[in-house]
Structure formats: C-alpha cells, structure tokens
Nucleic acid binder design. Structure first.
Length: 571
RNA sequence: CGGGGAGUGGCGCAGCUUGGAAGCGCGCCUGCUUUGGGAGCAGGAGGUCGCUGGUUCAAAUCCAGUCUCCCCGACCA
C-alpha cells in the first residue's frame, strides 16, 4: 500500500475525550472514528486489524470442528419472550418495531435465534453434538459506553453455540473450546488468564472468562500462581481463617455506643480492632427478609449471596423506615440477635469468639457475642469479597490480584434455552429431552484495544505479529523522481512480490512526520532510505521493538539487498 | 440513574465574569524555499457559536427550557 493513496488520517493532537491509551491511539492512528456514543467507524487500517483478529479466531474455531453460520441481527420479540429474556435483558437491548408495530430487538446475543434454528432440525441423538458459530455485530444499549471500542454499543463478536445429548459431551466440547481460546489468545500475543466467572444474564452452571491483563481493565481477578486457581473477584473463594485458639466465652453484654454508626467509629469508641465487629446487612426477597453477616473490615459480595441462595430477587434494605421496621433500630445499630429471619454468615467469621454486633437498639451494641450460644441458627457460607492477603481456597498459597479486560467467556448453559424454547431431541430410548447447550464468546473488536493496552509506548502502538496491519514500512526521505524515491519504489514492488505487506511512505512530507506516523501506527520495521544514506551507500532498517541494522547497497545488486531485508524481516 | 464537566471552522482550544466587528494553534488550498524525528515565508478557503424560546437598540456572552457528548460510580462482552 502506498501511504499517499491510503485513507489513513493520523492525528497530531490527541482527541480530548479519550482517556485510555488504546482509545487515544486508535483515534490518533486513524483506525476508528466516533459516530455517536458507543458507535464507531472503522477506517481501512482499523478494519484491516479487525479482520486479522477475526481470521485468527475463525481458523481456531474451524480447527476445533465448529461450523460457521450467519444469524440475523434483527430478531423478533416473540422469541425473546419465549425464553423470558425480553424483560430480563430489559433496557440493555435496543428494541424497535416495524410499520405493523411488530416488535424486534437488535441482537445482543444469539441463544434464542440459534436454538430456534436448530430445534426443528436436530431431532435425534445421532445429530448431536453440534457446534455452530458466527462472527457478527452485537448490539447492547450499554448504560455507559466507554473507552472507544473497548465497551461500545455496537461491537463485533464471535459467538459459538454447542448442542449435546449428555453432560459428558458438553464438557468435552467445553474443554475443546477452552483449548481453542487458549490458542487464539496465545496467537494474538495477549497476556491472559482464564478465570472462573459468574454466568450473569446468560444463566447456566459453569463459566470462565478470558481476561487480558491490563491495569486499566474493568475486571478484577484473583489468581493463585501455585496451583493455578483463578477466579473473577465477584466469585473468587478464599481459605477461611482457622479457629481462634481456645478462648473463654465471655458473658453477653450490651454496651452504649452513642452516635457511633460505622464500624470504624464503633471500633474506635470501644477500642477494639474493626474486624472484631460483625456487620449485618438486611435483604428483602419475595419470601421475606434475611440477614447477611460479614466481618467489620470485609465487603459483602452480593453475587455470592445470591448464587448461594439460588435466587435473583435479593434487594438490600436501604431505607431508614424499612430497616427500622425489620430490626427496630437505625442502620448504625442493627445486628442479627433477636431477629426472626434466616441468618447467613460469612465462613471466615465462623472462627470468631466474643465479637461485637449491633444491638437492634439505637446507640447500643452487643459485646462478647458467640455463635454457638447466641446465634446457633446462623448458616455459614462464603459471602465476602476476597481481598489482598487472602489465601487460595485450594492450596492455601497467597492469592495475587490483577486487573484486566474481558476478551472472551465460555459457558456451560445446560438446558436453560432448550427448555424455554421447547427444543428437544429423542435419545436412544425414544425419550424426548432438551439439548444441553454451551455458548462461547470472543469480543473481536475488544481484542484490539486489549492488545494495544498491553503493547504501546509514548510514540504509539506496538502490534503483535498476528495482527500487525503491515509487515514493514518503507520510508523515503526525498521526493518522487529522486534516486532515493526510486530505490524505495523498487523495494516496495520487490517486497510485495515476495509476499510481504509493505506500507510505502511516498508522501511529500518531512522526515519527522513520516517517522512519527510510522511509530504511531506501529510499523514493526522501517526501511529508511534517504539522501544521506544513499551517499554512504547504505540504507537503514529500524525495528519498532528497538534495534537498528545498516544494509549496504553500494555495489550490491538490488535483488541481494531485497534478500538481506527479507532475512531481517523473518528473523 | 447519582455526582462532575463540556458543546464556538476538520481537530485542539480562547472569548462568556462586565452584551457592542467571531479569534488562536494545528490541519487544509496556492506559490516559492526546504528535506534524517511533527520545516519556513507569503497569500487563501472554511463557522446556523448544539437546539428552541425569552430579555435587549444589540446575545457566542444574560435568562428559561431542551438535546448531545465526556469523566467518576452502580450494570455488562
């Protein structure tokens, strides 16, 4: 490609509304332009990179035995009503209607569509298993789109769906797809972790996310380097504390704590460590109230509570009047003792003795509370968020915490959609059974900012080999008609003929502009041909990753120079 | 949805407090000079000041409403 003919509008100044490096660089390097919040144009170079990501994914999906299809973006509301997700997905969906007032959605995902497609065709166990995938735009009316194509409302996703007659088959495909994903992200050059994940709106039993490590990422994960345990912090488990040594159980005692409404204030007032206090949260459900208890310095993880209880109707009681009605006290003094509601306590505080809770009487707390005597009905389970210093639930080694960008997620969905959509097959005994399903997504468009976020410097992008938009740049530092330009022109043709993808910077621009653009757009190698080098009988080859080579051209046949450059490109 | 901020040539911004000729830098066009890390000189094109209404002799500027966008948070790939 000749730069002068390529639609590659680089920006000297960085757009003010971009904060993240990947967002800035994609705009500056002329890859994307914003159309409206969360919706972007891909310019030629951006699109080229996008297609490279897509191709890596497609190759690995095909290799894993998946078949590519193309499903519609416009989807009828009826299908979504059938799966009951029309309301569950809610405002997250772009909804529209046609001239007859028929309702539709722009597909945020395709479980309904694909299940509908196969339900009339896969009628025998002999047809299973089957895995289909597509690479297609998805639409989600994000609450807050941000960081360019990192979180946008229209985005390109690879989504695959598998159908099975047995859990074993589902698990086998799940493992195969896991392996395929590992190959994809390795090939793309990402530094990534696969972590246990909540399955959210998709439903299902087991799910893992693929997280590209980046400090600016929106996901937080806990990882054990010792045994390989890795989980999204929303569900990450920890190893509970050991029982405190034999301690005498002291007498329960009500103490005055006037106006002390926070853990810190109470701890300070009573001169005890904050962790000695147990926090109480009251939740309402369709079937009444319940209490959740965590340590004073811990954070209740609602995801854990709701998945432990297996219910999605949890709502934390957050108005003064309601909390008073349930406990008889205001927020600063609520506690579990004397409440006639189920009590769930975090496993980590089970070992505590003689601790402190609110007295359910304004301005008072209870000291020397003990489970076996005062709260014998409390049920213990993992309820709190993991935190710095926690130990691995499997091996006890200390957990490491990272932030990252979610680039993929795989789910064992089970029967959720096949049941809802009445999608059955007949097994060997002639029994009608719903398929077991899995689904597997990769955020193709999000992979690009993830790669950039892991590979850039102050000058611009440093592409990984799998997605680099060009193999090499040819920078000529003289105008058309000069020997310099002519030599560059020759190398451009020659390298193209040899199967490389060069960008020939033939623009009438000053050297500084050309060098800076080359760095910005991430040309992995620059071949620099200028009058100065020409005079010395040489040209320079400069690597984006660092390092420089000089190639002698004086008296050397051009073909040999091209050979030499080819060697340098291949190393 | 809560909190903060911004809408002025393609991009980045000033002007608004105190109403009175729409400016600056970059980019763009023409010509000449330049050419190894974002060149110089000269000339030029380009703007419904987000939108609607109001106040006023006069509104980018004051008032009211409205739309859009950005940042932080709760949600999600």
């Amino acid at each position: 490609m000749k730069f002068s003919e390529y639609f590659l509008p680089t920006l000297k100044e960085t757009p003010s509304d971009a904060k993240l490096a990947s967002h800035k660089l994609m705009l500056q390097a002329g890859m994307i332009r914003k159309v409206t919040a969360g919706v972007y144009d891909y310019l030629p170079m951006g699109f080229k990179v996008l297609k490279k990501v897509e191709e890596v994914v497609r190759e690995e999906m095909n290799r894993a035995g998946c078949q590519e299809v193309k499903l519609p973006i416009i989807q009828p509301a009826d299908l979504w009503r059938e799966s009951r997700r029309w309301d569950d997905y809610g405002d997250e969906m772009f909804k529209l209607s046609d001239r007859k007032d028929q309702e539709f959605a722009l597909g945020p995902t395709h479980e309904e569509i694909i299940t509908d497609m196969v339900r009339n065709e896969l009628s025998s166990y002999k047809d299973l298993p089957l895995t289909l995938y597509q690479i297609n735009d998805k639409y989600r009316d994000e609450i807050r789109p941000r960081h360019g194509v990192m979180r946008s409302r229209e985005f390109l996703m690879k989504d695959a769906y598998s159908f099975h007659g047995s859990q074993e088959s589902l698990e086998e495909t799940y493992r195969d797809l896991y392996d395929a994903y590992a190959r994809v992200f390795d090939r793309l050059g990402l530094d990534w972790y696969a972590v246990d994940a909540p399955s959210g709106l998709m439903g299902g039993s087991y799910s893992q996310e693929f997280i590209a490590v980046a400090d600016e990422g929106g996901e937080e994960i806990a990882v054990c380097d010792e045994c390989g345990y890795a989980a999204n912090v929303d569900i990450a488990a920890y190893k509970p504390s050991e029982d405190e040594a034999q301690v005498e159980l002291k007498e329960l005692e009500e103490v005055e704590t006037p106006g002390k409404e926070t853990v810190a204030a109470v701890a300070d007032y009573l001169d005890v460590p904050g962790q000695k206090i147990v926090k109480t949260f009251i939740y309402s459900t369709d079937d009444g109230y319940l209490a959740a208890l965590v340590g004073g310095n811990d954070e209740l993880e609602e995801t854990k509570l709701s998945s432990h209880l297996g219910r999605s109707d949890l709502e934390m009681v957050s108005t003064e009047s309601e909390i008073e009605q349930v406990t008889g006290a205001n927020f600063g003094s609520i506690g579990p003792i004397g409440l006639d509601i189920p009590i769930y306590a975090d496993a980590d505080i089970k070992a505590m003795k003689n601790f402190i809770v609110g007295a359910n009487r304004n301005g008072y707390h209870l000291k020397n509370v003990n489970w076996e005597r005062d709260l014998e009905d409390a049920k213990f389970t993992d309820l709190r968020r993991v935190q710095e210093g926690d130990r691995c639930p499997r091996c006890g080694d200390e957990l490491d915490f990272y932030r990252g960008i979610e680039v993929g997620q795989i789910f064992q969905l089970g029967e959720k959609y096949s049941r809802a959509l009445d999608a059955h097959y007949q097994d060997e005994d002639g029994q009608l059974k719903p398929y077991l399903m899995g689904c597997y997504g990769i955020g193709i468009s999000r992979v690009i900012p993830a790669i950039i976020q892991q590979n850039y410097d102050e000058d611009g992008v440093k592409w990984t080999e799998a997605v680099q938009p060009f193999d090499v740049g040819i920078i000529v530092l003289d105008d058309e008609g000069s020997d310099v330009f002519e030599y560059g022109s020759y190398l451009y043709d020659e390298l193209s003929d040899r199967g490389y993808d060069p960008l020939f910077d033939d623009r009438d621009e000053s050297p500084g502009v050309k060098f800076n653009d080359a760095d910005l757009i991430g040309l992995p190698v620059m071949i620099i041909i200028g009058p100065r080098g020409m005079k010395n009988g040489e040209l320079e080859v400069e690597f984006r990753a660092g390092g420089k080579e000089t190639v002698k051209i004086d008296g050397v046949p051009r073909g040999e120079v091209a050979d030499r450059i080819g060697d340098l490109l291949n190393r």
